[in-house]
């Protein structure tokens, strides 16, 4: 049957073509991340020659570079990279699961929940390190449950969940502002971190816990990548294809909230990175395959590039969240206007 053979050839080449495009996109993003990472390490207030950067990375003592690169820039770059990966992956997981780009954790209150818990733990309870992260993850899950519960009426409609989430988010943000204003030692840097997100004052000790969180929660998400992808066809279709909807949802919520909250506990809620990464990644890799990895990579690019811009390219020095916020807000407005034109309720 020649028609069948021809079709077989066509779909195989279509599949290869899509895979090539995807691999190319992923490769370019990885290269971009590498370039931004090295840029952050070598070019700051002063220029460190690349060979010195490499020597510091290899653990050698280089006078004049070991401190700047090893103690200041490396933790900062690593934290930007990890937080970007976490935000990008966690954000797109929610957007895909709820099939709505507005259903991102930083819009529906999960980031602000984690942020509020972190601020409360640090300012009021005087906790430090991993305890803050645990509090943030628990609060993030709590907010996810709360938003889900409040928007439940014979099932959860995306629009209702988003509106409830925006309300909850606003409440939690004012709680953050209130707690910060009551803090004994008012520190602007610290306050900015919890309000918009920042990697200023990154400590080497922050890196390993966040890497672990990325491996655990990111691994959980990756293990459900195919089922998550099936959800893009609608819950009914996904179920008909043998996806356990409830199980997938729980795994995705735990994984994504874990990622978002762990990163938020360290860097604060870096504005709109979770929200922007998925749609950008979808544009780059096209409609096929899981968006988890591409979106994580886009998140890392956004945070690394945003932080570099905020530090060195703009007049004055801004935390990364100010830059990503300025990028994200117009897109949010665009999305709402577009949805509005189509005449749906949000």
């Amino acid at each position: 049957m020649t028609q069948l053979t021809a079709t077989l050839d066509a779909i195989v080449s279509d599949r290869r073509h899509r895979a090539r495009r995807r691999n190319l996109a992923v490769g370019l993003l990885v290269a971009l991340i590498l370039a931004l990472f090295l840029l952050t390490l070598s070019l700051g207030q002063s220029l460190t020659p690349p060979e010195d950067v490499v020597r510091v990375l290899l653990g050698q003592q280089v006078p004049g570079a070991s401190f700047t690169v090893g103690q200041l820039r490396l933790p900062r770059a690593s934290l930007s990279l990890l937080a970007g990966l976490c935000f990008g992956m966690g954000g797109v997981a929610f957007q895909v699961m709820l099939r709505n780009p507005l259903a991102s954790p930083d819009i529906i209150g999960i980031s602000s929940g984690a942020s509020a818990a972190a601020v409360f733990a640090i300012v009021v309870l005087s906790l430090k390190g991993p305890a803050v992260s645990v509090a943030a993850v628990v609060a993030g899950l709590g907010v996810a449950l709360l938003v889900y519960g409040l928007s439940f009426r014979n099932g959860v409609a995306g629009t209702r969940l988003i509106l409830v989430g925006i309300g909850v988010s606003a409440m939690l943000e004012s709680f953050v502002a209130y707690t910060l204003s009551r803090a004994p030692a008012w520190d602007l840097q610290e306050a900015m971190r919890w309000l918009t997100g920042s990697v200023n004052g990154a400590k080497p000790g922050d890196v390993l816990p966040l890497l672990l969180a990325l491996l655990v929660f990111g691994g959980l998400l990756a293990s459900r990548a195919r089922d998550l992808d099936a959800l893009r066809l609608g819950d009914d279709m996904a179920a008909a294809l043998g996806t356990g909807i409830a199980r997938t949802r729980i795994a995705v919520i735990v994984g994504a909230v874990g990622l978002i909250a762990s990163a938020t506990a360290v860097t604060g809620p870096i504005a709109f990175v979770a929200f922007l990464s998925g749609p950008i990644a979808a544009r780059i890799v096209g409609g096929s395959g899981s968006l988890l990895l591409p979106s994580a990579l886009v998140g890392a690019v956004l945070v690394l590039a945003g932080d570099y811009c905020g530090q060195f390219l703009l007049p004055g020095r801004y935390p990364v969240g100010v830059v990503t916020g300025a990028l994200g807000a117009p897109y949010l407005i665009f999305l709402i206007v577009r949805v509005n034109r189509r005449g749906s309720s949000l």
């Binding site: 899509r18 066809l233 609608g234 979808a282």
Partner: peptide
Amino acid sequence: LPQSPIAPEGITVAD
């Protein structure tokens, strides 16, 4: 085949 399945944006027929 449910009543209104959703085709993800930018997906090809073969995919």
